[in-house]
């Protein structure tokens, strides 16, 4: 990945492993949260992944960059977890989680306006694969090609999911969009 800095560390050493862990833990945690909508489960998954890697202590078989390998693992582990728990696509449960999380980080959310808060809720309604792709595109700023490589799907599929995501979000945001657009168009026409 072009954005990734070349890290001259050896993950087989304790110091190297700690560096790797500290560099990627928080963003992987956020990625897992995007998929699972639960910080605690997300932490468990990322911690378990690092434990597994530390136990195995073998990085030679990873032929992509370590970062995209980690993202791929978090994605699969999260999806497997959801399948196991059968919580995928249960929007009600997700919404319940979000509400809980919203009260949890109330201070964080206060900064957001009404429309943003609504969009945040709408994001939770995306199917899991859509959510993963949307996260990688919008929060990690990966190109379609990079997302395709990471999830081992075609570029066309990435695009299809983005279109699907947009369609769902637009539908969810309907009541907010006309107002926003009026403001923006006026700004733009000036």
């Amino acid at each position: 990945m072009e954005k990734e800095k070349t890290i001259n560390i050896d993950p087989n050493t304790e110091a190297g492993f700690e560096y790797l862990f500290k560099t990627y833990f928080r963003e992987l945690h956020a990625y897992a949260f995007s998929l699972l909508k639960d910080w605690d489960t997300g932490e468990e998954i990322v911690q378990a992944l690092f434990l597994k890697l530390w136990e195995k202590n073998d990085w030679t078989n990873i032929n992509t960059s370590i970062k995209s390998y980690l993202y791929k693992c978090v994605y699969h582990d999260s999806l497997n977890f959801m399948r196991r728990e059968k919580i995928h696509l249960r929007y009600q449960a997700l919404t319940a989680h979000t509400l809980k999380n919203e009260t949890d980080d109330a201070s964080n959310k206060l900064k957001l306006g009404e429309a943003e808060r609504h969009l945040d809720m709408a994001l939770n309604k995306l199917p899991e694969k859509c959510r993963a792709i949307f996260h990688l595109s919008r929060f990690e700023h990966l190109k379609y090609q990079e997302i395709a490589n990471q999830l081992e799907i075609s570029i066309k599929t990435v695009e299809t999911h983005m279109v699907k995501a947009l369609r769902i979000l637009r539908k969810e945001m309907q009541e907010f969009l006309p107002f926003i657009v009026l403001v923006l168009i006026n700004l733009w026409k000036r």
Partner: peptide
């Protein structure tokens, strides 16, 4: 504009892990 709004606003909604690296590493 609608599409742009959704894509750009969502960008700001990126969730940040509530844990620090140090705490996570200790755990």
């Amino acid at each position: 504009e609608q599409t742009k709004f959704i894509l750009e606003t969502s960008e700001q909604l990126a969730q940040v892990s509530p844990l620090t690296e140090g705490v996570a590493w200790d755990r």
